[in-house]
């Protein structure tokens, strides 16, 4: 169970011959993820950790049917890689690559919307459905199977909070990063909708940060839909000054929009439990789950 990926997910790795692609293909295989092929233009015929490499997505899919792709291709070519996967019918695409130009990302998202594909990222740690499949770069040992769904705009902060949950024996169904860029595929609302339908998920952890208004829109959604599962949130960037990009391209307060204060207020008014510190997330959940 869980959302988006599970044990039936068969994935290709685009950019499999690069340092990151190679390294994480090994870790994903070790986790049990079904990686059926890799793609790097000009490197067709190679093998990486036993995974056959092809020059094009089309060629890979002729031999190895797949329903997902994870992209490690450098920023300059990453949008092209995503379009190639989309055009060849892949409906779940995880873009790990950071620093993709906004214009390119907008093109990818528009196309994905037209063909009803799910894009996670760019600039995401990926997605993990505990003990079923991992398409991402997160350290697997901090996760354990359970009933908490996690969705986040950050990488290491998610690990911090997930490790805290695991320490308290609060296992996770699926955990995914939306990506730290201004333009991403999935957003919080999309993922909340999926968690709502997933019988394994009993509660949701939402990790937001400054920039944009997705957390505020999510709060509106929770109110409007009377969201049936408890949501606990943490918002990073309370101490961030306006106008400065805090590491993520998307983490910037513009004028009066995008402050942590506004997000926390909106979420609290929607009945979401917003934690003061990362470790409080697990504490809050423990209380809720006990009830």
């Amino acid at each position: 169970m869980g959302i988006i990926i599970d044990k039936n997910t068969h994935a290709i790795v685009q950019g499999i011959t690069g340092t990151q692609g190679r390294f994480h293909t090994k870790l994903m295989l070790e986790y049990g993820t079904k990686i059926v092929a890799g793609v790097t233009p000009g490197k067709g015929g190679m093998q990486i950790h036993g995974v056959p490499v092809y020059d094009t997505v089309e060629a890979a899919l002729e031999k190895h049917p797949a329903n997902a792709s994870i992209i490690f291709v450098p920023a300059i070519f990453a949008a092209e890689a995503a379009l190639e996967a989309l055009e060849n019918g892949i409906k779940t695409i995880i873009i790990i690559t950071e620093h993709i130009p906004i214009k390119d990302a907008v093109n990818v998202m528009t196309y994905a919307e037209q063909v009803n594909a799910v894009i996670i990222g760019p600039n995401t740690p990926g997605i993990i459905t505990s003990e079923e499949s991992k398409l991402g770069i997160m350290p697997a040992h901090i996760f354990m199977p359970g009933s908490i769904g996690m969705v986040s705009r950050s990488g290491t902060l998610t690990y911090e909070i997930a490790a805290g949950l695991t320490r308290k024996q609060l296992g996770q169904s699926t955990c995914l990063g939306l990506g730290g860029d201004p333009i991403t595929g999935l957003n919080f609302i999309d993922v909340l909708k999926m968690f709502r339908k997933d019988p394994q998920t009993k509660a949701v952890v939402l990790i937001g940060e400054i920039g944009g208004n997705l957390e505020e829109l999510t709060a509106e959604y929770i109110i409007k839909e009377k969201y049936p599962k408890p949501v606990v949130a943490f918002i990073a960037g309370r101490s961030a000054p306006p106008g400065k990009r805090m590491g993520h391209a998307g983490a910037i307060i513009m004028g009066k929009a995008g402050t942590a204060e506004s997000k926390i207020k909106a979420l609290r008014s929607a009945g979401v439990n917003v934690a003061e510190k990362p470790s409080d997330v697990a504490k809050s959940l423990a209380r809720i789950i006990d009830i």
Binding site: S154, G155, L157, Y159, E160, I207, A240, G247, A251, K277
Partner: peptide, 12 residues
């Protein structure tokens, strides 16, 4: 390491 973690560190 990681933008979210560093932001949370500043907040803490």
């Amino acid at each position: 390491n990681g933008a979210g973690l560093v932001m949370a560190t500043l907040d803490t």
